[in-house]
């Protein structure tokens, strides 16, 4: 059996991976479909039909402006996913090279500066970074991306450095050094490919944390601004009407919960798939 087939078989036999993947794909799919079609235009207000409970015409009901909640959730998925994905890209794009550099020059001044810088960023929870940025530039989805992205940098830098440090002691790295390869080439050709699996798993986790952070930021008004629909914003709008129209709060919250749950399960599943030793040890 080829390695690919074995991997696929392992993947299909991994319950959390399959459930997580399906859940995540549902929401990514909803976001993609929303570009082409939504049940009802999210800009269209229909005051006479506001706060309608779920019905045939509106599967998940309507909000306080009579907008279709299912459509809002589909379009809101775009915001959540875009913010979280770009934040992961920022975190990886800056954190991974920093971690590789710190590991390649272990114990040097560069290593020390990078790691202390990491500690410093760690002292600023993403919410505080967002507050700082918003106080200066005003609230927007872009500022939410930057805040969550900055928060992601030390996560990836630490992970990469830790994994790379142990790789640098391996024989094949020694062989590469003997062959005259420099630190940058060794990092790119031998270290990076061997930390990719770890990065994918952590990327999934940071993706799900990003969705939660985006929801929290837009809930307090520091994220995407109206009229752009976002899940956090929908929850903020529903708050004062929760006793009259609980469905307005329940469905966007379920969307966040299920997306995050799906991504977390997928992360767990991927970790087991990439490193069967952990799975055996955990059972």
């Amino acid at each position: 059996m080829s390695a690919g087939v074995m991997m696929l078989r392992g993947a299909l036999g991994n319950r959390s991976l399959v459930i997580g993947l399906v859940l995540s794909l549902v929401f990514v799919g909803a976001a993609l479909v929303s570009f082409a079609w939504v049940p009802q235009d999210v800009g269209a207000m229909d005051i006479p039909n506001r706060m309608q409970p779920p019905s045939g015409a509106h599967l998940l009901g309507t909000d306080h402006f009579g907008r279709d909640i299912l459509s809002m959730i589909m379009v809101g998925a775009r915001t959540s996913i875009a913010v979280a994905v770009v934040a992961v890209v920022i975190g990886m794009g800056l954190g991974v090279p920093l971690g590789l550099a710190a590991a390649a020059r272990r114990g040097s001044l560069i290593d020390e500066v990078i790691m202390r810088g990491n500690d410093l960023v760690f002292a600023f929870p993403s919410l505080l970074i967002a507050i700082m940025i918003t106080a200066v530039f005003g609230p927007s989805a872009v500022n939410a991306i930057i805040a969550i992205g900055i928060f992601n940098i030390p996560v990836f830098a630490r992970l990469t450095r830790g994994a790379a440090l142990s790789l640098w002691t391996r024989d094949y790295v020694l062989a590469a050094r003997v062959a005259g390869k420099g630190a940058v080439r060794i990092s790119a050709e031998h270290i990076l490919p061997n930390v990719t699996n770890l990065l994918i798993v952590q990327g999934t986790i940071q993706f799900s944390l990003g969705i939660l952070a985006e929801a929290a930021l837009s809930y307090v008004g520091l994220g995407a601004q109206p009229p752009i629909p976002s899940w956090g914003r929908m929850l903020a709008d529903s708050q004062t009407m929760i006793s009259l129209a609980p469905h307005m709060a329940i469905f966007p919250g379920m969307a966040i919960l299920l997306t995050v749950l799906g991504l977390n399960l997928m992360g767990d599943g991927l970790r087991d798939l990439f490193d069967p030793r952990i799975r055996r040890a955990r059972q």
Partner: peptide, 17 residues
Amino acid sequence: QLGVAIPNFWFAMLMVL
């Protein structure tokens, strides 16, 4: 697994309800 995935401010709203 659920506790980690639930947005806590949403959980707070449900508890208020």
